[in-house]
């Protein structure tokens, strides 16, 4: 049976009722995807490959919300999802999923926390750009996105095997632009938490440890 065969009933609401569907799933038992960005191909196309199965990130439940943060302060981003109970009666499908990242910490990273002064204190809307070897990466501070979710306001930059970055630029919501190339005469090194207060300066710290 196919729901769409009854499309002329779409105005009656019948189509959207449990009793109409019975015990049959509706795009249930589907896996989450992790589309790995493999950069540009020779023809300029951005190449992605779904590595969810290969990395163990391919949960099959009916997730709705998704949030990303470094919950264990190890320098990589972990995943949490809120999974809908669905219609299977199996309570384990309604459990939240906490997915620990075991791989990001093997490579170098930089974490950045902002505090606005003229701008809003959370720095929401600020764009941070990290420059390494002529390449740039940009992240935005947000408070709400995806489906009904909110991600880490501390920004993370993966820098692979590089041990320092050439520069870090903050474009604040107030319009102020700040560029940092050194911290107290030292280059900006990897595996640090950089705390930047608008118009005040930059400090290099470690991520809080247990």
């Amino acid at each position: 049976m196919s729901a769409v065969a009854h499309i002329s009933d779409y105005k009656t609401g019948k189509f959207y009722r449990d009793e109409f569907r019975g015990d049959i799933s509706w795009n249930g038992y589907e896996h989450n995807v992790l589309l790995r960005n493999d950069g540009r191909a020779a023809n300029g196309t951005l190449v992605f490959n779904d590595v969810a199965m290969a990395t163990g990130a391919d949960d099959i439940r009916d997730a709705r919300g998704l949030a990303i943060a470094d919950f264990d302060n190890d320098g990589d981003l972990d995943i949490v999802t809120n999974n809908n109970p669905g219609d299977s009666g199996r309570s384990e499908l309604a459990r939240a999923m906490l997915l620990r990242n075991n791989v990001g910490e093997r490579h170098n990273w930089l974490a950045v926390e902002l505090e606005g002064t003229e701008s809003n204190r959370d720095g929401v809307g600020a764009l941070v750009t990290v420059e390494t070897n002529g390449e740039i990466q940009t992240r935005q501070v947000t408070a709400g996105s995806s489906f009904a979710s909110q991600h880490s306001a501390r920004l993370y930059f993966g820098i692979g095997e590089q041990t320092q970055v050439a520069a870090l630029v903050v474009r604040w919501p107030s319009g102020r632009v700040e560029r940092f190339e050194r911290i107290e005469n030292n280059p900006i090194g990897a595996r640090q938490l950089l705390r930047i207060k608008e118009g005040t300066g930059i400090a290099a710290l470690s991520l809080p440890a247990q």
């Binding site: 049959i24 509706w26 989450n32 960005n37 990130a57 299977s88 990001g104 990273w109 993966g158």
Partner: peptide, 19 residues
């Protein structure tokens, strides 16, 4: 960027009603 290689990847959750 799950693997800290400097490129942002995409995670997308999938599934509507598991019965």
């Amino acid at each position: 960027d799950y693997d800290n290689d400097g490129r942002q990847d995409i995670y997308a959750v999938n599934g509507w009603i598991t019965s």
